[in-house]
């Protein structure tokens, strides 16, 4: 049988990202033989607390991509309200539309089949700059971000330093 459409689509994106890299991250595969598992290095966005850091992430695509979203995980330790302590990213565009009556509740914020590695990474990078306080995945980080920003900054700075050493 020929390769599934999801694999072709991911291969196309990988080739495109290799040819025309996008500022802010670099993308590749964890294992060259598995197009469904990507490794991405995010460069801490300038003018944010994460500036100077290098954060390694993994993206796991389902066979049904692009009908279903990938899962994303930070491998490098990071302190952020929307990334849980295991590194799992909690961002609305990676969530499928809920089982609401009509199937399009807040559709604009949910997963759509037009999302690519590039659009996902752009959202995640913007999330680093601008955490979403409403749906924290790391409650302690969210609380700190709101109530004791100095402590929050210190923890982030520690992660940034650690990420530089690991790199």
């Amino acid at each position: 049988m020929s390769e599934p459409q999801s694999a072709l689509l991911l291969r196309k994106q990988l080739a495109e990202l290799n040819k025309n890299p996008v500022e802010g991250f670099s993308a590749g595969l964890i294992d060259d033989n598995d197009i469904y598992r990507w490794e991405v290095l995010i460069i801490g966005p300038p003018d944010t607390l994460y500036e100077g850091g290098f954060f390694k992430c993994h993206l796991y695509f389902p066979k049904e991509y692009p009908l279903r979203p990938p899962k994303m995980k930070f491998v490098t330790e990071i302190w952020h309200p929307n990334i849980d302590k295991n590194g799992d990213v909690c961002i609305s565009i990676l969530h499928e539309p809920g089982d609401d009556k009509f199937g399009y509740e807040k559709a604009s914020e949910r997963w759509l089949p037009v999302h690519t590695v590039e659009t996902i990474l752009i959202s995640v990078i913007s999330m680093l700059a601008d955490p979403n306080d409403e749906s924290p995945a790391n409650v302690d980080a969210a609380k700190e971000w709101r109530e004791s920003y100095t402590e929050f900054k210190k923890k982030v700075a520690r992660c940034v330093r650690k990420s530089q050493e690991e790199c």
């Binding site: 009908l67 499928e96 539309p97 009509f102 399009y104 559709a107 089949p113």
Partner: peptide, 13 residues
């Protein structure tokens, strides 16, 4: 799976 346009999110129904 979802009755929305993937480009503009308009509900199709």
């Amino acid at each position: 799976r979802s009755l929305t346009c993937p480009s503009c999110m308009e509900p199709v129904d």
